[in-house]
Computed example of a mutant assay.
Amino acid sequence: MELTYIEKIKEAASFIQKKLGTVQPVIGLVLGSGLGDMANQVENPVAIDYSEVPHFPVSTVEGHEGRFVAGTLEGKQVIVMQGRFHYYEGYDMKKVVFPVYVMKAIGVQTVVMTNAAGGMNRSFQAGDLMVISDHLNMTGDNPLIGPNHQELGVRFPDMSEAYNREYRKLALELAKSVVGDDGAPLKLQEGVYAGITGPTYCTPAELTMLARVGGDAIGMSTVAEVIAARHSGLKVLGISCITDMAVGEELEPLTHEQVVAVANRTKPKFIALVKAFVREVKLG
């Protein structure tokens, strides 16, 4: 007999908890393309490949390791997702957000969602980081479509503050003291993330449209996961690494390898900011 979605979440969570032993994560970190090295900062790490976890999909994208790493970071117990799942890989939305509900089931209270994104705001430049203030769901889908599981959350979740206001304020304040390996201070932007399905990058006309309706950055992840996080009562901080400029009128050809390369260069500042947030954030 086919297991229900809730039963699959519980089985996956039970498996992970047994693997973690005494580690009880309270913060989840979801790492986007080129940002997976953040997991190397975790002390006394316990690694679990996604392929081991019951009912888990497999990450197929370059720059996504495809495993959990749990342990201690800046005095708090965390679980890091080195790689995520995307709609464009052929997974349905419920599969894409499955790990979010699993993290909630093992005791996570707060998630830091990160991604690589194209900058549509002309005041941005490649290498900036952006705190996500809000999002535009341009995927044409929603992970909550279908029967609602009351055990996971309410039928009609409020999204008036998808990205926690206090978390955003804290990140912007902490950024003032972050300096990169090059000695330059971190330039932390704030703006609206437009989530698309991919896997194609946008046309100039599409980018112009999205910028005109309020998008500051664009990417192929995060939105569905944030919807699931808020559905389940998790608080969210979102951070985009601006890996390229996606201004419609000035668009140049782009490859995934270029995206990962810029994310790699930005990593020191990204890691410093995330570590500072984990250290300073108040939970509960």
Rank of each mutant, 00 (worst) to 15 (best):
V154W: 03
V154F: 08
R155S: 08
D158Y: 02
M159C: 06
M159V: 07
M159P: 05
M159L: 14
E161N: 10
E161D: 12
Y163P: 09
N164L: 10
N164C: 12
N164Y: 15
R165N: 05
R165K: 13
E166S: 15
E166F: 12
E166G: 01
E166Y: 14
E166H: 15
Y167D: 02
Y167Q: 03
Y167I: 10
R168M: 08
K169P: 01
K169E: 12
L170C: 02
A171V: 13
L172C: 12
E173T: 15
L174S: 02
A175C: 09
K176R: 15
K176W: 14
K176V: 14
V178C: 04
V178L: 01
V179W: 07
V179Q: 11
V179N: 05
G180R: 04
D181K: 11
D181P: 06
G183Y: 09
A184G: 00
A184Q: 13
P185M: 04
L186Y: 12
L186H: 04
L186G: 04
L186M: 04
L188D: 00
V192H: 09
V192C: 08
G195N: 10
G195S: 13
T197A: 10
T197C: 09
G198K: 06
G198A: 05
Y201H: 13
Y201K: 05
T203K: 05
P204M: 11
A205K: 04
A205C: 10
E206R: 07
E206H: 11
T208H: 03
L210E: 08
L210N: 09
A211N: 04
A211D: 03
R212Y: 14
R212M: 15
R212W: 13
V213F: 15
V213W: 14
G214A: 04
D216T: 06
D216A: 12
A217Q: 08
A217V: 13
I218Q: 01
I218W: 01
G219W: 13
M220K: 06
S221C: 07
S221A: 03
S221Y: 13
S221L: 10
T222C: 02
A224Q: 13
E225I: 07
V226Q: 00
I227W: 12
A228M: 09
A228K: 08
A228Y: 11
A229I: 02
A229V: 06
A229M: 03
A229K: 03
R230K: 13
R230Y: 07
H231E: 05
S232H: 07
L234K: 03
L234G: 00
K235P: 00
K235V: 02
V236I: 09
V236P: 00
V236Y: 08
L237E: 04
G238A: 01
G238Q: 00
I239V: 15
I239C: 05
I239E: 02
S240N: 07
C241Y: 05
I242V: 15
I242G: 00
I242W: 07
T243K: 08
M245D: 01
A246P: 04
A246V: 14
V247Y: 10
G248T: 14
G248K: 03
E249I: 07
E249K: 07
E249H: 08
L251N: 03
L251K: 03
P253I: 12
L254W: 13
L254P: 08
L254N: 04
T255G: 10
T255A: 07
H256P: 06
H256N: 11
E257D: 14
E257G: 09
E257A: 15
V259W: 06
V259E: 10
